[in-house]
């Protein structure tokens, strides 16, 4: 799916218009610059913030918490999804529980994580895992349905073992759907980690953003938002690139 020149041009125009409005509205006095600092001011603040080691440490800790949470949730969720969809009876038993846990907002459990685990690194990770593992599980279940029995049969005819069928038939069949789930998991995991940091923490970008907001430091608040948006976009696009590589054959 390559974008044509007019589309690219249109996108550039849209971004320019958005940033232009952000710059112009406070400067023209349409928006209160105290509430909405102009884009150039925010950019300057961001540059200044990035020069501070403390902030870079905050950014690093948030990113590491997210990556650890995702690194746990992906294999655990995938394996649980496989287990539940390969054992129909087990799947039927656990179905309601999984669906409930998938459906309820995870944030309501945050106080319990704080009570049991404190407000440190592993509490953020645990809450991140809890918030994403069911998304991965659901997408793994959907991905298993994409495995064609014919392909399994062929592999068996050529003497494939169970492990070989898992690795050479299940995995490539599941990968496109699985990666889509992974991408969602990263987005939700990011939200979860930031939320946990904003709620109760001594470190991390979420903690910083919350305190800037409480102290009415709007330029820093917006700079933080900008920074996190960039991190989210980079992660998202990286997974999407892998997704495109792995699902070219589905066209």
């Amino acid at each position: 799916m390559r974008s044509s020149l007019p589309v690219l041009l249109g996108r550039a125009l849209l971004i320019a218009a958005f940033l232009g409005a952000w710059e112009a509205l406070p400067r023209l006095g349409v928006a209160d610059p105290e509430l909405l600092p102009p884009f150039s001011t925010v950019l300057g603040t961001l540059w200044g913030l990035l020069a501070r080691p403390a902030l870079r440490a905050d950014l690093a800790i948030t990113t590491v918490q997210l990556l650890v949470a995702v690194a746990v949730a992906l294999p655990v969720g995938t394996l649980l999804g496989l287990l539940l969809s390969e054992n129909p009876r087990l799947g039927a038993i656990f179905d309601p529980l999984v669906f409930f846990l998938f459906s309820i907002p995870k944030s309501i459990f945050l106080p319990m994580f704080i009570l049991t685990m404190g407000i440190g690194f592993w509490q953020k990770v645990a809450f991140g895992v809890f918030s994403t593992v069911f998304i991965v599980l659901m997408s793994a279940t959907a991905a298993v349905r994409a495995v064609r029995p014919d392909h399994v049969f062929v592999a068996r005819a050529f003497g494939a073992t169970r492990a070989q069928i898992a690795w050479r038939v299940y995995l490539p069949s599941m990968l496109p759907i699985l990666l889509e789930g992974f991408r969602l998991a990263v987005i939700f995991g990011f939200t979860a980690v930031l939320l946990a940091e904003m709620y109760a923490s001594r470190t991390g970008m979420g903690h910083q953003i919350a305190s800037w907001g409480e102290n009415f430091m709007m330029d820093r608040l917006f700079a933080g938002v900008l920074l996190l948006a960039i991190v989210a976009i980079v992660l998202n696009e990286a997974i999407r690139a892998v997704e495109v590589r792995c699902s070219h054959w589905r066209s």
Binding site: A155, F158, G159, T161, R168
Partner: peptide, 29 residues
């Protein structure tokens, strides 16, 4: 597969493998 090779009604090739990798699949196993 050392004694019998099978060709199915639908070709049932793996869509994520190239033609040559599909042919080589039994060897890869």
């Amino acid at each position: 597969p050392d004694r019998v090779g099978v060709v199915f009604q639908e070709a049932n090739l793996f869509p994520w493998l190239t033609a040559i990798d599909n042919v080589a699949f039994p060897l890869a196993l």
